[in-house]
Design a protein around this nucleic acid. Structure first.
Length: 108
DNA sequence: AATATGACTGTCT
DNA sequence: AAGACAGCCATAT
């Protein structure tokens, strides 16, 4: 996994993120599974790294952690988007995965 | 080549 | 409920 494969991995991850419907979210793990199936490996950390490096131009706020929360710094930036998209939120302030979780479609 | 790190996750305490 | 630990994969130093 490196060089061009890396680029493809990035593309797959970003594609999944872009495919997340409004008001819905997915998790790093879910993306890692779907992308990993095609890319033949990878893991949540990789998705995280990819998002950190190339997640800028995509709706990264639709990708949350397994507990429905985002890194504190980003959570603040994401909140307005959730409010705008009508994403189900829990009293705690994080996303209600019970309702908002969206499973990315199997690529390839 | 080895160690440390990260926008992660699951289990145990 | 909240913190500690280990597993996981790729990149950076």
């Amino acid at each position: 996994m490196t060089r061009l494969d890396h680029e493809e991995y990035v593309e797959l991850v970003l594609t999944c993120v872009e495919r997340v419907p409004r008001g819905r979210v997915t998790t790093y793990g879910a993306i890692a599974e779907v992308v990993g199936t095609v890319a033949g490996g990878g893991g949540p950390r990789l998705v995280g790294s990819v998002m950190a490096m190339h997640g800028g131009p995509v709706p990264w706020w639709r990708v949350v952690r397994a507990d429905g929360s985002l890194p504190p710094s980003h959570e603040v930036d994401a909140r307005p988007h959730y409010l705008d998209e009508g994403t189900p939120l829990r009293p705690s302030g994080n996303v209600d995965l019970k309702q908002a979780f969206w499973r990315p479609p199997a690529l390839g």
